[in-house]
Write a protein that binds this DNA or RNA. Structure first.
Lengths: 338, 338
DNA sequence: ATAAGCCATGACAGCCTTGTCAAGGCGAGC
DNA sequence: GCTCGCCTTGACAAGGCTGTCATGGCTTAT
């Protein structure tokens, strides 16, 4: 197969200079239409692909976007990759993935890779996206970055988020619509901003519908299965239990299901359970979990888009951001109260 | 911060030529020890990092390893990435991830990226690793590759595998040791080579211990939760049911648990359940699933190692391969028969 | 002592593309 | 008809590093 066709040969075949081929390749203006066509034909005929190393050495772009993560959830990570790649491919960019070890000095891990591979931009996922040391390094090196679902300091950089408050609000509304009035809630890890937002959405819906929030029916969790399990044990002890439990994420909701199972409480007949995130586990229980789906791929694609200049921004303007829609996924774990 | 230190400045500071710095950087022989030291000090002092584009343009290496996948399991994918990166970083290599769309013409997707980014090697995961069209393109482009857990044509290329037969053999042995004699089995997707291997290991263990394999206690599954669920419904209907079920993967095992749950069969008191793969879901059920853990990260690291020349091979020798050890993860879903 | 050979180092070209700048052609305005 | 300025194109250098080959010093063998 065509092993290494250079821009030279394309130029010769199409009878123009190298530079003009370069212009066509980079979609630059000021090339006559028929010249452009001729070059494109030559490119196709020779099956020419520009050499990315030469490009980035000569020019300013590296055609590489980095994805930094340090995320325990594989499903999240792959979704981010998939979403980002989808957008990157359109522009001929590639994705470099760099898992970070949050135990160590994260910033120290970031700096060398920024230096070696001069990436055109970086996508940061939680929790790295809230690591100020990393942000500092990125800024010092002048590498543009976009944060996915950041918790803090939203104004500091471009970012993409989902409306956690409204999602929790609507999930609570869904339970209320099913007739539940005593709805238990399991909060997420207090260090995650999303925890507060989700709790707020829950409170808001309860209040708006005039249902009291019983303090002893709100438990602190930590986003883990075990913490959900333990919270549920407290919530479901005795007969004075809620008819529905809304956990701040799926893993905890699965913990609730496990307890219900143990106590022989039928889901959803006796107890409705709702989660948040739509992790793969949500479909791997019986009954399947009602939950909220974050459009992770779309969010990552939006982040890539921001990086690739989908919206150029002038000096001094606020960093761009996008707010994406969530999706309520109603499955079998929630049902009418009886 | 040090924005762009070039090899030039390192050379000047250490009082040697550019070329010598290059030699030190590439760990080439024939550099006097104290020269080497001096250069290394200068590198450290200036915080110099070689520019990867320039390196790959000038030399033959691109310092990039690709990971191609088209795998439905996020956990698998991330583990592969983590394992591969761990090894790559030691040598200053980076990872490019390229999800493939198996619906389309996979080979056509592969060719352009091989052309643009001349990667030094590619790691192929199932099922891409058995796509002959992709292998053909890779070979035509002269890009070295290593396959992870390939099914077919093992002699064709370097690969890394786990001993599925022995793993299934030992899992079955574990159940037998617990006193089970009537052990049901759910086969995996017939298109996956691993399915046959696992079944074989099961058969082998049953035979060796003199236990009959009841044909009506072996069901065909397809690696999905649903197929495991349905297989279990058949297996567990009536009183003449096995005391243990060994499913060829975790998702199907979870399906079995769901049915047991439904039928109010206590696990493991009345029914022992074993899976295979140790997916995250295995820990998110109650009781937690006994399963087999593939050392995926280690396998990926071994693949990277093969690529990075951990074992150079001479002309005409067979492609290198590695066989890694699995691990039996005994949790609560299996117990003594009663 | 002389030749042969190895070791350590450097000079220089080249890798393939893009950025800069200059030049020629051509239509518009006066 | 002439100047101005825009559109289109090309020549050339530059980008940071490695490969090749040459150089000189020093060791080993004769």
């Amino acid at each position: 197969m065509s092993s290494k066709v250079t821009i030279h040969e394309v130029a010769r075949l199409s009878g123009v200079s190298i530079k003009t081929v370069s212009r066509v390749l980079n979609r630059e203006p000021n090339v006559k239409t028929d010249t452009r066509t001729r070059v494109q034909e030559a490119v196709a005929a020779l099956n020419y692909r520009p050499n990315i190393s030469a490009r980035s050495l000569a020019g300013s772009k590296a055609y590489l976007i980095g994805v930094f993560f340090d995320n325990p959830s594989p499903a999240y990570v792959t979704d981010v990759q998939l979403g980002a790649i989808a957008r990157c491919r359109e522009e001929g960019y590639h994705l470099i993935v760099e898992p970070l070890d949050s135990q160590g000095d994260v910033a120290a891990q970031v700096e060398p890779m920024l230096h070696t591979l001069r990436m055109d931009g970086v996508i940061l996922t939680p929790p790295v996206c809230d690591n100020t040391a990393v942000l500092d390094v990125l800024e010092a090196e002048g590498v543009p970055y976009v944060r996915l679902s950041p918790d803090q300091d939203l104004g500091r950089s471009a970012h993409v988020r989902m409306d956690d408050v409204r999602a929790a609000y609507e999930m609570t509304g869904h339970l209320i619509a099913l007739g539940h009035t005593d709805i238990g809630f399991i909060k997420g890890h207090p260090d995650h901003g999303a925890s507060h937002l989700r709790y707020e959405g829950y409170l808001q819906a309860m209040k708006e519908h005039g249902h009291a929030v019983r303090e002893d029916h709100v438990e602190q969790g930590y986003f883990s299965f075990r913490s959900g399990f333990e919270a549920a044990e407290r919530l479901l002890a005795g007969d004075d239990r809620p008819t529905a439990i809304f956990a701040s994420n799926d893993d905890m909701a699965l913990g609730v299901m496990a307890v219900a199972n143990r106590l022989r409480l039928e889901v959803p007949q006796t107890l409705s359970v709702a989660g948040f995130d739509d992790t793969p586990g949500a479909k791997v229980v019986w009954p399947q979990l009602t939950t909220v789906r974050q459009p992770i791929q779309a969010m990552a694609a939006a982040a890539a888009d921001l990086l690739l200049g989908g919206s150029k921004r002038g000096e001094g303007e606020a960093p761009p951001s996008r707010l994406l829609d969530f999706q309520l996924v109603v499955r079998e774990s929630t049902g009418p109260v009886r």
